[in-house]
């Protein structure tokens, strides 16, 4: 999973198409928010090709981060209310048997929705 951030220059180019053609790799867009002056995308890429795709994207002026880690939870602050559960768009958060809040990190897409709603500020993106 790669997180891409576009500046005003890069946002005008059809970068995903260019990267797909140049690397012959399929890019699966997980999340997209593109405005007139900046944009942010999260794309899924085959593991072996991630480096090459990232290089090409960087050459077009895109800020690329690999997203290996999921949202992090501060166990001291978490009260296990579960308010984050219904907000998560990919259902990555749930309750354990003893009713503690647990995050399935492999499903997390770094959207930050849970970070915003957490009442005790126990969640953060790395």
């Amino acid at each position: 999973m790669l997180q891409l951030k576009f500046d005003p220059k890069a946002v005008k180019k059809p970068i995903i198409s260019l990267a797909t053609i140049e690397t012959s790799t399929l890019l699966n867009i997980i999340r997209a928010s593109v405005g007139p002056r900046e944009g942010e995308l999260v794309v899924e890429v085959e593991d072996g090709k991630a480096e090459r795709v990232a290089d090409i994207l960087r050459s077009y002026g895109v800020d690329v981060h690999s997203m290996e880690e999921a949202v992090e939870k501060d166990e001291e602050r978490c009260v296990h209310c579960g308010l984050c559960i219904s907000i998560c768009p990919v259902e990555a958060i749930g309750f354990s048997k003893e009713r503690k809040v647990v995050i399935d990190t492999s499903r997390c897409i770094h959207c930050g929705s849970c970070v915003t709603v957490c009442p005790t500020k126990a969640l953060k993106l790395p």
């Binding site: 009260v79 296990h80 003893e98």
Partner: peptide, 13 residues
């Protein structure tokens, strides 16, 4: 529709 709790059953327990 998904439901979230504001209270903590874990800490109540």
């Amino acid at each position: 529709v998904r439901v979230s709790s504001l209270s903590s059953l874990y800490i109540a327990g």
